[in-house]
Computed example of a mutant assay.
Amino acid sequence: MRIATNIIVFHRIMLICAKTEGADMKLKMGSKRYTLVIIPDANSSVRRFEVPKLIPYIAGAGLMTLVSITLVLYVGHARNASVANKLQTQIVSRDAEYTSTVQEKNQTIEQLQNQVIQLSQQTAEMKAKIDDIRKQEDEIRTITGSGQVKISSADVAPAAGAMGGSSTQASNGEVQVLVEQTKSQLSDLDKSVDELKDSIADTKEKAIEAQQKLRITPNIWPVDSRTITSGFGLRQDPFTMRPSFHSGYDISAPRDTPVHVTADGVVTTTGSDSSHGNNIVVTHSKGLQTWYMHLNKMLVQKGDRVEKGQVIGLVGTTGRSTGYHLHYEVLKNGVSSDPKPYLP
């Protein structure tokens, strides 16, 4: 009830103020003050206040100024918030781009590091292969009688297969060391390839010389048979039964067995007599000659060039012979030699 009474009283106060102001406006148009009357309730005394006429205008202007300032601050805050949001969006976007770029660069660096490791392994494998080639070259040089090539110690190349161990990220320093080692290995490999190229060319030349030497040196059996019925040196003569010197090998073979020349050469003599029967002499090189006797048939003529393994006649029993065989003789500077060193 008291609240309602106060509202009614306040209403009355406003009406009294309005009426008083109206009366004052009519009676005193030039007055510069307002009178404010406050009646708390029916039993309380009335209170009056005089307010200068400019105060409401000043209050209104202040309120308008406050509202304007508030609006300006609000608009500024909103604008700053929008700019801040844009900047935050740009920062997030740039951060994402930077993170993506860093990840891509890290992946690229890791790929390059793996490629360096693979290159280093391939370099070691290539060096090992070059050393293997040099070993084979040394074997060829040994066969041909040439000097051996000095082989550098090869790095152990990893073989393909199972692997394991703990995983530790390679540091940039370790990768840099591997790069420098690989550079050094590649430099050495380049020199090794050049040396190997020259060495192989020399080995090839030596091999050709050795091959040529083998072709002109008697070192194969003249017939397929390996049955020696009479060796080189002293023996009992099959006709006189007296001790005599035998200057070659008698190799037993069936009639018309092919007779092969044992080295490249030139036919210097073909003939027939009561002792040697049908016979052929072939001159080779370095004072070597081979002599084929008791042939049933001769297939070459004097002056013919013959190649190692070529058939020059057929086994027979012509001349001083007790049966089908080939008398094979090797002469060194015109002197009969033991054929054994010239047979495989």
Rank of each mutant, 00 (worst) to 15 (best):
T318E: 02
L299T: 04
S321Y: 06
R226E: 05
P341V: 08
I109S: 07
Q136H: 13
G145W: 10
S100L: 08
S184A: 10
V335P: 00
N333V: 01
G76V: 06
F239V: 14
S247V: 03
K286L: 07
R47S: 07
E104C: 02
G287I: 08
M25W: 11
I16E: 09
G334M: 06
Q310K: 07
G309Q: 03
S171L: 11
R235H: 09
G62T: 14
S152M: 09
T203F: 03
I91E: 11
E137F: 07
L71H: 00
T101W: 08
G233K: 08
D41E: 01
D304M: 03
H77T: 15
S336N: 06
M298E: 01
A210R: 10
H246N: 13
I251R: 01
A81N: 14
E97S: 02
L73V: 14
G248D: 12
T269K: 14
S82V: 10
D41L: 01
H284L: 05
T70Y: 09
D138W: 06
A253W: 07
V300L: 07
E125N: 12
G22T: 10
R79G: 01
R33G: 03
S167E: 10
P222G: 10
D304H: 04
H325C: 06
F10T: 14
Q90V: 08
I151F: 13
R305H: 15
K53G: 03
A263F: 05
K332I: 06
K53D: 01
P158C: 05
G147H: 08
K297E: 12
V102T: 13
E209R: 13
T65S: 10
S199G: 11
G309A: 01
G165M: 00
D198G: 14
T70L: 15
E97M: 06
R2Y: 13
T101I: 09
L178K: 03
T99S: 06
R320Y: 14
Q103S: 13
W291R: 12
Q136K: 15
F49K: 13
L288F: 08
T217M: 01
T270G: 02
Y34W: 10
D132Y: 14
N6Q: 08
Q148S: 14
T240E: 04
L189A: 12
K204F: 04
W221D: 00
G233A: 10
L214A: 12
N80P: 00
E329H: 07
D41Y: 01
K150Y: 12
A18I: 11
S275G: 05
V259F: 03
I220P: 03
Q88H: 12
A162F: 11
H246P: 09
V267E: 04
D190F: 06
L314R: 04
A59F: 02
M1W: 10
R226P: 04
L63Y: 09
Q185V: 00
R12D: 04
H327S: 11
K302C: 09
A157G: 10
V102N: 12
K308A: 04
S31Y: 11
Q121K: 14
I8K: 07
I130Q: 07
D24K: 15
Q185I: 05
Q113D: 08
R48D: 06
S120V: 02
N278C: 02
G303L: 08
R305S: 13
D24M: 14
